[in-house]
Write a protein that binds this DNA or RNA. Structure first.
Length: 130
DNA sequence: TAGGCCATCTGGTCCT
DNA sequence: AGGACCAGATGGCCTA
């Protein structure tokens, strides 16, 4: 492909280029690129931002990559599910034997809460964050 | 400098 | 036919 549909803010300039090349598909491709940009920015990224807002972190404004958002969201759902299962919101949600993880370790979110509550965590603490 | 992350472009596929 | 969605490619930026 000789013509590169690089992003430009100036549609007038781009339009004239289209006319110069006499290529209608070029304009269609440009418009498709613009739609895809808009979809990525306004749909995909906003969804990631909305999901990010629901994930507690320390500090709260910690920067998360998209893959981290997805992984932590999954972990957080598991955390909430565990708390719902035990019905105890005060104690850490230790995993039970029925879940896929056989070891009784503390989840990231309980671990984070515990660290905030205690100024120091003793080295012989049996809980292992996952 | 290598690796991770991201935005953007692109072409294919599916849907209306 | 045109738009939405998706995945691969690419290049730029940032950080350890």
């Amino acid at each position: 492909m000789e013509f590169q549909y690089q992003y430009t803010e100036n549609w007038d300039t781009f339009g004239s280029q289209c006319r110069d090349t006499g290529s209608a598909p070029v304009k269609q491709r440009y418009q498709a690129n613009a739609r895809e940009r808009d979809r990525t920015q306004n749909s995909v990224n906003m969804a990631f931002n909305a999901l990010r807002m629901l994930i507690p972190t320390e500090p709260p404004d910690r920067k998360l990559s998209k893959i981290e958002i997805l992984r932590l969201a999954g972990s957080y759902i598991t955390h909430l599910d565990n708390q719902l299962y035990t019905g105890d919101m005060e104690r850490p949600c230790l995993r039970n034997d029925n879940c896929e993880h056989k070891n009784a370790s503390m989840c990231t979110f309980c671990w984070s809460t515990l660290k905030k509550e205690r100024s120091t965590v003793t080295s012989n603490n049996k809980f292992v964050p996952y």
